[in-house]
Design a binder for these strands. Structure first.
Ligand SMILES: [Zn+2]
Ligand SMILES: [Zn+2]
Ligand SMILES: [Zn+2]
Ligand SMILES: [Zn+2]
Lengths: 161, 161
DNA sequence: GGCGGGTTTGTTACAGTGTATCACCGCAGC
DNA sequence: GCTGCGGTGATACACTGTAACAAACCCGCC
């Protein structure tokens, strides 16, 4: 199985993610079509956040063009099912390796150096956010938490180099 | 002085923000040109996050066209000085009403209903985030924290209506 | 005043991201 | 067969952002 370099917190392999996607769709009575599978696979294999146009190019081959619009539709579907996430600060998409509940506060850790994106969730962080919002009299519906920086692997490599 | 409706946590008025912008530029030996002032004013007066093209249209008049690229340059300048913020999830810009330090963790509270955007900062939230990142072995450089939901004013209005 | 160099702005063109629309296909259900 | 519906293909388009170059502007200096 392919496993990308660069950041090591990617617990689930590509096969695991595809299997989970398939079972999620089956459970919910939804179609895991070839196109959706290919898009999921492309996102899962990349090892870093992929733009929709990147995915379209990856899936295209001489004689078989996949238009970006098709990729967007597949991505919309996969996002609704919680199988991929959109990284707003990059206009790009990553596979969800965790299968957390929707609405659960998750922080995306985006490495400047290797481009890898990990997810971190934390009770503590979520509590802090909830209290901050409550103090402001704000009722949250959806959060976007993204941090750009250097992942442990890349930091180690820099210090060693 | 104009004060928009919708959310009430906008402490600073348009005049205050313009005055601060002017003094910030003077202190730093930078030019607060007419264009930059107009863009700052447009962002400050809007009451909700404005797209660059919206601002360009606002500033344009028959016979005097302001191109989006000029607006982008002014916005880049104002962002560098911490006078406006970019809302990544909206591709839009708001004035900074607080004058906080750069790099300080600030959450943007985006109201679905009125479109207003407030800033909230919290020691507690920042500590939670720091600890979460530390646990993940991640060194942060820049954070994007945006929450979409309903502001207090709009929630009150909904319950009343 | 005239000159030189940095900054700001205007203008055009272009790249990147995302959506609307309509037609076509495949398949389940009648 | 026919119909309805979800998925896909294809084109066009809107929105967001940047590159490149020229013109204008400012300011210190001769
Ligand atoms: Zn996830
Ligand atoms: Zn890294
Ligand atoms: Zn601010
Ligand atoms: Zn509101």
């Amino acid at each position: 199985m392919h496993r990308h370099e660069g950041h090591d917190a990617c617990q689930a392999g590509v096969g695991d993610m595809l299997a989970r996607a398939e079972s999620v769709c089956r459970e919910r009575g939804l179609q895991f079509t070839p196109l959706r599978r290919e898009v999921m696979e492309a996102v899962a294999e990349a090892g870093k956040a992929q733009g929709a146009y990147d995915i379209a190019e990856t899936l295209s081959a001489p004689g078989k063009r996949v238009a970006p619009v098709s990729v967007y539709r597949a991505l919309d579907f996969l996002m609704q099912q919680g199988l991929v996430h959109r990284i707003a600060s990059r206009n790009a998409f990553i596979p969800c390796a965790h299968g957390h509940a929707p609405g659960e506060g998750v922080v995306f850790l985006i490495c400047r150096s290797c481009g890898g994106v990990d997810e971190a969730s934390s009770e503590e962080l979520e509590d802090g956010l909830d209290r901050t919002l409550k103090r402001a009299g704000f009722t949250p519906a959806h959060s976007i938490l993204e941090v750009e920086g250097d992942c442990g692997a890349c930091r180690g490599r820099q210090e060693a180099g």
